[in-house]
Design a protein around this nucleic acid. Structure first.
Lengths: 229, 229
DNA sequence: TTGCATAGTGTTGGAAATACACGATATATT
DNA sequence: AATATATCGTGTATTTCCAACACTATGCAA
């Protein structure tokens, strides 16, 4: 088919800000660039969009290729189109952000993701291109979104304690939260199912384990429930 | 310069959902397509991104060319990348939304925007491409954003009454609002400066006119004020 | 003068958010 | 066995915020 528009075209890429949570810190997964430009520098995983795949597909493919991650929570963030953002030529990038369970990724770390590494969001190194801007916007989006949508669970293992959940929220929102009020509120949503297990870590009382009840969430969401933190 | 990536490329466009407010209704500006595909059908204003302009520049240029509108509130919305969204070939569109004062547009209507027309959002006709999806998402974004950011003023003339402002919010949010509570809240933000003028329309008490105090908004925003409705 | 249409204004009860402290329970140590 | 220690888990009192609600004011037209 002839092109309907035959002027010079920008190249189209996707980039992903992958968030993880561990050691009470919010982290971002970075890769070391193997090619010019910015060879050797740290960057967000990403790459060119093929002409026969959607943006979402492209982001997932690049994520799998460069980090080994699959089946993750992924959403489009913003499209970055400054003219000189890539020194080679005009490249427009559709940025995404992803939430992954660190445990899931560690399994793959030995294979695909040899050159991918986690960095605390609070101490990100210099990044290639405008990736620092992208990461910054992704954090702002996550901070906004987590207040009214229960997406934090995507960052935790399937079984978790209320303290872990609270520490996650504290890390994302960069605040301290009151334990009793936090528990009152999150349990009030009715989305946490207590398990019969507890978790022992250290010489103190063991903590109740919970799982996120995704089915119930879907039902309540349809009824228009509000999950504002 | 040689292209760094010489595979087939998607074409890149921008589309704009232009909101206006009049007759107590939220409206969207549509144009009639002059060319195939969808020749004669109604569509959002938009067009191809040039290789030497940013996405924001492209959206503003297309808006000026197709509707005569300049210096409007404009923000990026979402990037639509379904493979078959354009029947010709692969076209990825960076959608934007704009807020304009109907009065501003009417002045231009006779010249540039001969084939642009306002339609109530509640009764949109069939649209070309996936533009109905784009319009739907733009409305959702506007409804979300208007709750915690004072952007509604972009849709009103420089001088307006509190009733007009309330009717605007009611149209956007598709709800009824309590007059006293609404006034209490918006005046409480301290962003409305009363003018010495009043507005008479009909045989009843005249209404106080206000203007939006943009300077004060910038100052309060920096201090972290909250403008949640 | 009356009718009419919209402008403008406060209070109150209930709900929600916040602030706050101590007993429970497991392990490790002596 | 007793004790030290570290985190888990829980309730109440206060304050703040939100929602519901009705009448007077003012201009014009008839």
């Amino acid at each position: 088919m002839p092109h309907a528009y035959q002027y010079p075209r920008a190249a189209l890429t996707v980039d992903c800000v992958v968030f993880g949570f561990g050691q009470d810190e919010l982290k971002v997964l970075l890769i070391q660039r193997a090619l010019e430009p910015f060879k050797g520098a740290l960057a967000l995983p990403g790459g060119f969009v093929r002409v026969d795949e959607t943006l979402d597909d492209a982001a997932r493919r690049e994520l799998a290729e460069e980090t080994g991650l699959k089946n993750v929570f992924l959403e489009q963030l913003y499209t970055f189109g400054e003219i000189k953002r890539d020194p080679r030529e005009r490249v427009v990038s559709v940025a995404h952000y992803a939430l992954v369970k660190l445990s899931d990724h560690k399994a793959k770390a030995a294979t695909d993701a040899a050159n991918a590494e986690w960095f605390p969001i609070s101490k990100l190194p210099k990044l290639a291109f405008d990736h620092a801007d992208i990461a910054k916007m992704a954090l702002a989006r996550l901070q906004g979104k987590v207040r009214y949508q229960p997406i934090g669970f995507e960052l935790l293992p399937p079984k978790f304690t209320l303290s872990e959940l609270q520490h996650l929220y504290e890390a994302i929102l960069e605040t301290k939260l009151d334990k009793r009020n936090f528990r009152k509120k999150v349990l009030g949503f009715g989305l946490l199912a207590p398990l019969k297990e507890t978790q022992m870590t250290g010489r103190h009382r063991p903590a109740q384990l919970f799982r996120f009840d995704a089915d119930k969430y879907e039902k309540l969401k349809k009824r228009g429930s509000n999950f504002e933190l």
